Simulated assay, not measured.
Amino acid sequence: MLATSSRFAWIIDDVPGTSTPHSTTSPFVALPLIAETLALPNAMISAHSCGIKSLSIFSDSQVLIKLVKSKGKHLEIAGLFNNIYFLSYRFTAIEFMFIPRLANARAYYVAKHTLSLMYQNQV
């Protein structure tokens, strides 16, 4: 298993018709599920700092959404899930929903774009 740096991206739609892309990096991410799980708390912190009180999180990782909704414990990333649950209490309402990748084109584009920027900066 090869661990590489990853760039996480998310979009906050806080005002109708307004979208703000965000991203961050993390070194040594070994699995796609870990990358998806690391992105969630970053997005939640961004939303909270924007003053958002009710939050809907959409992800194209069906495994991640099922684990978060069921409060499942995935041994390798249990600590990350605890962080997600703790951050959930900052919101008056929060929901986690699966969205197919084809229906999530904007977020997919932002993630791919920021990933290409990461590789350009390594050259």
Rank of each mutant, 00 (worst) to 15 (best):
L2F: 10
N42F: 06
H74M: 04
V15W: 02
K71F: 07
G17N: 15
A43T: 08
A30H: 14
W10V: 06
V29D: 00
T18N: 13
L117E: 13
K66S: 15
V29I: 13
T20M: 03
I99W: 00
L2R: 07
F98W: 08
V63T: 12
R101A: 11
P41S: 04
S56G: 10
L87R: 06
Y109A: 15
F58E: 05
S56D: 11
F8Y: 14
G79W: 01
D60P: 03
A107M: 02
I57Y: 01
F96D: 03
P41R: 01
I94Y: 02
S6E: 09
L55M: 06
M1H: 11
R7Q: 11
D14R: 04
L2M: 09
T24G: 05
I65D: 00
T114N: 05
N104P: 04
V63M: 02
A111D: 07
Y119Q: 12
S6D: 06
L64Q: 04
V63I: 11
T18Y: 09
F96E: 03
T18F: 12
I12D: 03
H74I: 14
F86E: 08
V123S: 07
A30V: 14
S5C: 13
Q120C: 12
I11H: 02
L115T: 15
D13G: 10
E95W: 06
T20K: 03
F81C: 05
L2I: 14
N104V: 14
S26F: 09
E95C: 12
I52K: 01
H22C: 12
F98E: 03
T25N: 07
I99F: 00
L40A: 13
P100K: 09
N82L: 10
V123E: 09
E76P: 05
A43S: 08
D60F: 07
D14C: 08
A43M: 05
F86S: 12
S5Y: 12
K112F: 08
F8R: 13
P100Q: 07
P16R: 15
Q62G: 05
A105R: 14
I52F: 00
A3E: 09
P16L: 15
K112G: 15
L38D: 04
S59H: 06
A47P: 02
K73G: 11
L31S: 13
S116M: 10
I99C: 02
A43P: 01
L102R: 14
T114P: 00
P21A: 13
P32M: 11
I77R: 02
Y89R: 08
